[in-house]
Amino acid sequence: MKISLTVNGQLREVEITPYTRLLDLLREDLGLTGTKEGCGKGECGACTVIMDGELVASCLVPAPQADGSEVLTIEGLGSRDNLHPIQESFVETGAVQCGFCIPGMILASKKLLDENPHPAEEEIRLGLSGNICRCTGYAKIIDAVMMAAEKMDGRESDQDG
């Protein structure tokens, strides 16, 4: 069966089976390997993407349910030359060690900051509670989200002014 969905702003058509997961579709059919598979059971958050504005574990989304949806993966957020403020902040605070969890962490951070531009530490912890990191101990990841909140605040007011 064929489905079409918008991935990072581009309309894509993909041939799928009923048991293709959104994760497989992104990584294998579209080559977007920034989305990682950790546990495959929705427990680690490495496969997190934003689908129709909501945070989802792409390993638990049947591809047929993604038909007609709009998906944002880490590749759609920024580029090597033009990092998103959240990505900049993760680099600047040293919040990345092995990096495997980071695409999911950054997308969870984006979803959080879109809804709550000035989160308290406890709110950040709740927003990122579906994402597991085995390297950093989370402290610097939380610093990164706080820094990103400040940066994004500044840029938004620049635009407004």
């Binding site: 048991y19 059971k41 574990a57 638990l60 989304v61």
Partner: peptide, 26 residues
């Protein structure tokens, strides 16, 4: 039956192809 799939996709992790018929009510 499949709705949000957050449980059944865990239950059938790596053996999704074993399910013959899906009724997706989503």
């Amino acid at each position: 039956l499949v709705a949000g799939a957050t449980d059944i996709f865990v239950q059938y992790n790596e053996k999704l192809h074993e399910v013959e018929n899906w009724l997706d009510i989503s």
